[in-house]
Amino acid sequence: MPPTKQELLAQSIDLVVGVVDSAPVYQYQDPTPCSEFTVKDLVNHIAMMLLMTRDVGSRTELDPSLLTANPVPLLAGRPESDWALLLAGKAGPAAKAWTEPAAWEGSASLGGPPMAAIALGEVLIAEFTIHAWDTAVATGQRIDVPTSLAMAAFDTYTREAPRMQGLGLLGDEVPQDADAPLFDRALALTGRDPRWSRPTR
């Protein structure tokens, strides 16, 4: 049986949290494939996503400061050496909030225009998966993205990339061969170059 959307979301969260846990703090100032983010910025962004995923799944009112705070309140005032552990502590609640069928019903929002909750959940799966890759390649880690997550990310961005580009959330697609690996094609849809590598020191 293919994994359910609830299982895919939990897998994507576990993937990104595991990569963040293995990212050395001394690399937090290094660049990432997201040109506007350092590794530190990306870890902060992932923390924000986990908190918002928890709240949206449970239909709790979002804290608007999460969209602008850097670092988010969860990490503020804490040494960067604690960030991975603090972030990991929010992984379970984020995934659990979407285990109820009601989380996937109706409409929901991450601070932007409301959209179908099932589509938003699919975007979260894709975004956590992509950010796991971002963090891994920025810190020199090997990452094996499960085929189920690669397929979920590709399907979601095939549908959502034009809308997200219009909102300024993604860059222009990077051309890829039709026979390129599925996850490379998913990355390309987000405006990322699958061949990106961190600068040599």
Rank of each mutant, 00 (worst) to 15 (best):
Asp63Pro: 02
Leu67Met: 11
Thr68Trp: 00
Thr68Gln: 14
Ala69Glu: 00
Pro73Leu: 01
Pro73Gly: 06
Leu75Phe: 08
Arg78Trp: 00
Arg78Thr: 05
Arg78Pro: 01
Glu80Trp: 09
Ser81His: 03
Trp83Leu: 00
Trp83Glu: 08
Ala84Ser: 13
Ala84His: 12
Leu86Asp: 01
Leu86Gly: 01
Ala88Ser: 15
Ala94His: 08
Lys96Met: 04
Glu100Ala: 15
Trp104Pro: 10
Glu105Asp: 13
Glu105Arg: 06
Gly106Ser: 07
Ala108Val: 05
Ala108Thr: 07
Ser109Thr: 15
Leu110Ala: 11
Gly112Tyr: 04
Pro113His: 07
Pro114Trp: 11
Ala116Asn: 12
Ala116Met: 12
Ala117Trp: 11
Ala119Arg: 14
Leu120Lys: 00
Val123Arg: 14
Ala126Asn: 10
Glu127Thr: 12
Thr129Arg: 01
Thr129Gly: 02
Thr129Val: 04
His131Phe: 09
Val137His: 09
Val137Ile: 14
Gly140Cys: 03
Gln141Glu: 04
Arg142Met: 05
Thr147Leu: 15
Ala150Glu: 05
Ala150Cys: 12
Ala152Pro: 08
Phe154His: 15
Thr156Asn: 03
Tyr157Gln: 09
Thr158Asp: 13
Arg159Ile: 10
Glu160Thr: 13
Ala161Pro: 07
Ala161Arg: 11
Pro162Phe: 04
Pro162Tyr: 13
Met164Arg: 14
Gln165Arg: 15
Gln165Asp: 01
Gly166Asp: 12
Leu167Val: 02
Leu167Pro: 08
Leu167Glu: 15
Leu169Pro: 04
Leu170Pro: 11
Gly171Ser: 09
Asp172Phe: 01
Glu173Phe: 06
Pro175Ser: 07
Pro175Cys: 06
Gln176Thr: 10
Asp177Asn: 15
Ala178Met: 08
Asp179Arg: 07
Leu182Pro: 02
Asp184Trp: 09
Arg185Trp: 02
Ala186Leu: 07
Leu187Asn: 13
Ala188Val: 05
Leu189Tyr: 05
Leu189Phe: 08
Thr190Glu: 04
Asp193Phe: 03
Asp193Leu: 04
Asp193Arg: 08
Pro194Ile: 04
Trp196Val: 12
Trp196Ile: 13
